[in-house]
């Protein structure tokens, strides 16, 4: 067993301990506070914990399977997210070719570019080439009704669900001196900090939440949840410095940026949901909603984290 795998297993073990703890709390709440499963919040909590077990298991398997496993997993997540996003857009038949291409051409090409590590192309393929080509494909069909709205929606869908999400596996391509072969731990760091930030915001919000931070966007986000969640996720990130090349201070600062971007990612994606009059992006992950409900914070923090690490630590 390599030392990367040892570190991976340590982190996965730590998460398993947290999940066992969460499952016990959920069990106790159902047993002693709301016997008979009458409380919706407690039922939802238990559903969320159960879904977390599944997600952690899947992610762990991908991490242990290595580079291909991680890339394929995130490509599938992108596909599911893009499917949810497209469902809520106003597309018309004239957009059909452009949209089909985002699923069956743009998405695979982006992940293949990540796979072969062609940084110069995967960082501009969507923002430059797809940005210009997709509106051309739509324009050729000649339907001008809400043209700008439709094209902008397609751009947003691809940027959020494919471009941004693909920056998670792109972390595997960074070349950090003295960190060779350990890049998967960068993904672990990002995902653990951003998801724990979401979870801790939820926990702090449920325990102390009084003042709503953005009542028109998200009824469940509170100032107390935000401050408590970001502060504790930042601390947690600092404590994980030993799996990163950043040192304790660097890990803390990066964790802070990740948690902050994750929070605002959740807020932006909530604004879109309110605009479209839906509560969740989908129903795929029981208790959580759709893939985008779970990925919104990761998607917003991944590209920023990627570039900060690249400028600060990477050779490429």
């Amino acid at each position: 067993m390599t030392d990367v795998q040892t570190d991976l297993l340590k982190v996965i073990g730590g998460i398993a301990v947290i999940l066992v703890f969460a499952s016990l709390i959920g069990w106790a709440l159902r047993r002693f506070v709301a016997p008979g499963g009458t409380d919706d919040a407690i039922a939802n909590l238990n559903e969320r914990v159960r879904a977390w077990w599944g997600m952690v298991l899947l992610l762990s398997l991908a991490f242990l399977a290595g580079r291909t496993g991680v890339i394929v997993l995130f490509a599938l997540c992108s596909f599911a997210a893009l499917r949810e996003f497209t469902t809520l857009t106003n597309f018309r038949q004239a957009d059909h070719w452009a949209l089909a291409a985002t699923f069956f051409v743009v998405l695979p090409v982006q992940y293949v570019l990540i796979g072969i590590g062609w940084y110069g192309l995967y960082s501009i393929f969507i923002p430059v080439y797809v940005f210009l080509l997709a509106p051309i494909v739509v324009a050729l069909r000649g339907d001008t009704q809400s043209y700008l709205v439709r094209v902008a929606e397609t751009q947003w869908a691809v940027m959020i669900c494919v471009f941004c999400a693909s920056h998670v596996p792109a972390l595997l391509n960074l070349e950090i001196p003295g960190f060779e072969g350990r890049n998967v731990l960068l993904i672990v760091f990002l995902v653990v900090v951003v998801q724990m930030s979401d979870v801790l915001q939820y926990v702090w919000g449920k325990l102390l939440g009084r003042r709503k931070i953005a009542p028109r966007l998200s009824p469940s986000k509170t100032v107390e949840g935000f401050v408590g969640g970001v502060a504790s996720a930042t601390t947690l990130g600092g404590c994980l410095w030993w799996i990163t090349p950043f040192g304790p201070l660097g890990a803390t600062l990066l964790a802070f940026v990740i948690a902050l971007m994750g929070f605002f990612g959740g807020l932006v994606m909530s604004a879109i949901k309110r605009d479209r009059g839906v509560k969740d992006w989908g129903q795929t992950i029981s208790g959580h909603g759709g893939f985008i409900d779970r990925l919104d914070s990761v998607v917003f923090s991944a590209p920023i984290f990627f570039h900060l690490v690249r400028y600060g630590w990477s050779m490429t």
């Binding site: 596909f79 893009l82 499917r83 949810e84 497209t86 038949q93 059909h96 089909a100 069956f104 989908g282």
Partner: peptide
């Protein structure tokens, strides 16, 4: 009907 409108043969995946 939005997945595969009349005259198209590649589906657009939506829920």
């Amino acid at each position: 009907n939005r997945v595969l409108p009349k005259g198209e043969f590649v589906p657009v995946p939506i829920i």
